[in-house]
């Protein structure tokens, strides 16, 4: 049964992050996920300082606010003339450092250690349960299901709006789409996804899960909807294969899942028919050969 919960948690992380990650890739803001995954620590610590509790909702709220704060600060620095990557670098390191400082200053004796935040511990997920409507499931599963539902609802309602404001914001603005509101709503979802996922798998795997499957799907698909399906599939595949390989080699589950994302990406990058690296190299060699023959 424990194995089932760990697999389910991993798969939910794969599906939720895979779904959210698609628009991070398309909006060319993959690194903002990295930033948010670190600054949610700041949000969680502040939420803890205010409420003195480690309950899930406060963590979600704190993280959402921290994510929005990050997005907002990056936006402010950018419109002040800084490049986006520099703005992200400045904002997230400062907030992350503040988060670490606050932990050591005010929350030293609670279960909120930095290593847990970075690596997570998915193997312990089954023992931390919540009862909702008399139904007992691991806390991580509840949180992931809730955030997945939010993500799905957002896409059901605003699919065409987020797509247009990603592809052509100038045109979107001209037909009256609230592109800034879309941006902040989406970034809120990224923050919520991050915090729901990172309790079980840690900040590092969250970034891997948000970016890797979606980047792989970008190589595979010619449409946004196709990309979403591929991205979720890759996320789940990495979670399940990662779990069994970790069990086989007796190593870190989260680490193995992240490694599998890298493996899947490389496989697609190298072997994809028509525009994979190997296919292209082969075609180039063939072309050179015929050229040499034609010239001789």
């Amino acid at each position: 049964m424990n194995e089932f919960w760990v697999l389910l948690t991993g798969s939910l992380v794969g599906i939720t992050c895979g779904l959210t990650g698609v628009f991070l890739i398309l909006r060319k803001t993959a690194m903002i996920a990295d930033a948010i995954s670190h600054t949610v620590l700041f949000g969680i610590v502040v939420a803890f300082m205010i409420t003195q509790s480690l309950s899930g909702y406060w963590m979600l709220i704190g993280a959402a606010i921290a994510g929005l704060l990050t997005t907002f600060l990056v936006q402010v620095l950018q419109s002040g003339g800084l490049q986006e990557d520099a703005a992200i670098g400045v904002v997230f390191t400062s907030l992350f450092a503040l988060g670490v400082l606050f932990i050591t200053l005010f929350a030293g004796n609670v279960h909120l250690d930095v290593e847990h935040v970075l690596m997570g511990e998915i193997a312990f997920v089954p023992w931390d349960t919540w009862d909702v409507f008399g139904f007992s499931m691991p806390k991580a599963v509840w949180m992931l299901l809730f955030v997945l539902l939010l993500n799905v609802l957002f896409l059901v309602f605003f699919y065409k709006e987020i797509k247009l404001s990603t592809f052509d914001p100038v045109f979107a603005l001209s037909i009256g789409l609230p592109i800034l509101a879309m941006h902040y709503s989406y970034m809120t979802l990224v923050s919520l996804t991050t915090v729901a996922a990172f309790d079980s798998v840690g900040a590092v795997l969250v970034v891997a899960m948000l970016i890797g499957p979606a980047a792989t799907a970008y190589l595979m698909s010619k449409s946004v909807s196709g990309m979403i399906v591929w991205s979720m599939t890759f996320g789940v595949t990495a979670a399940i294969t990662g779990y069994y390989l970790a069990k086989l080699w007796n190593t870190s589950i989260a680490g193995m899942m992240a490694a599998m994302i890298g493996v899947i990406f490389m496989l697609v990058f190298l072997f994809k028919p028509h525009d994979g690296w190997i296919w292209k190299t082969f075609k180039r060699m063939k072309l050179q050969k015929t050229n040499i023959q034609a010239n001789s």
């Binding site: 398309l26 709006e161 789409l177």
Partner: peptide
């Protein structure tokens, strides 16, 4: 002004003109 590597097809882009 736009990224033409965006994964979508011609008809889909024209359809965006109907969104308003």
């Amino acid at each position: 002004a736009v990224d033409w590597d965006f994964p979508t097809n011609a008809l889909d882009v024209v359809l965006m003109g109907r969104y308003g």
